Amino acid sequence: MGIKDQFQDKADELRDKAKDAMGGAKEETGKRGQRSQEEVERSSQTSDEAQRAAQEQQDRFNQDYDA
């Protein structure tokens, strides 16, 4: 095996490792994005629930005050 072949083999190996690393990074980024979206949705639900609870409390207060 000549020097050129050795360098080519090493270059191919490094290229393959880089591709694998990039694929893993893309996958991790996708997972992070999905987790972030889920957190936003949960936060929105919590906010909606809080608003609903506050409205119910205000309605009860108004009913008690009107009676």
Rank of each mutant, 00 (worst) to 15 (best):
M1Q: 11
M1P: 10
G2A: 03
G2D: 13
I3C: 03
I3M: 07
I3D: 11
K4Q: 08
K4R: 07
D5H: 07
D5L: 09
Q6P: 05
Q6D: 06
Q6A: 08
F7I: 12
Q8C: 00
Q8Y: 05
Q8D: 11
D9K: 10
D9C: 03
D9S: 11
D9N: 11
D9L: 12
K10E: 06
A11E: 04
A11R: 09
D12A: 08
E13W: 02
L14F: 12
L14G: 01
R15E: 12
D16L: 08
K17V: 03
A18R: 04
A18M: 09
D20Y: 02
A21Q: 13
A21K: 15
A21W: 11
M22K: 15
M22E: 14
M22A: 15
G23Y: 09
G23Q: 13
G23T: 14
G24C: 00
G24D: 04
G24V: 02
G24W: 00
A25Y: 00
A25K: 06
K26L: 10
E28S: 09
E28K: 01
T29L: 14
T29D: 03
K31S: 12
K31H: 13
K31G: 04
G33Q: 13
G33M: 11
Q34H: 13
Q34I: 11
Q34A: 14
R35N: 14
R35F: 07
R35D: 15
S36D: 09
S36L: 09
S36A: 12
Q37M: 06
E39C: 01
E39K: 10
V40K: 10
V40E: 12
V40W: 00
V40T: 09
E41C: 04
R42H: 10
S43K: 01
S43N: 14
S43A: 11
S43G: 14
S44V: 12
S44M: 14
Q45S: 07
T46F: 09
T46C: 06
T46H: 11
T46M: 13
S47P: 02
S47V: 15
D48R: 15
D48P: 02
D48V: 12
D48N: 15
E49D: 15
E49C: 01
E49H: 07
E49T: 09
A50N: 15
A50D: 13
Q51N: 15
Q51K: 15
Q51I: 09
Q51S: 13
R52T: 11
R52N: 10
A53Q: 03
A53S: 03
A54N: 05
Q55E: 08
Q55N: 05
Q55S: 06
Q55T: 05
Q55A: 12
E56N: 06
E56L: 05
E56W: 01
E56Y: 01
Q57T: 06
D59M: 04
R60A: 04
R60I: 02
R60K: 04
R60N: 04
F61P: 02
F61E: 06
F61I: 04
N62K: 00
N62T: 08
N62R: 02
Q63A: 06
D64S: 07
Y65D: 03
Y65M: 00
D66W: 01
D66C: 03
D66F: 07
D66N: 08
D66E: 11
A67D: 00
A67G: 06
A67L: 00
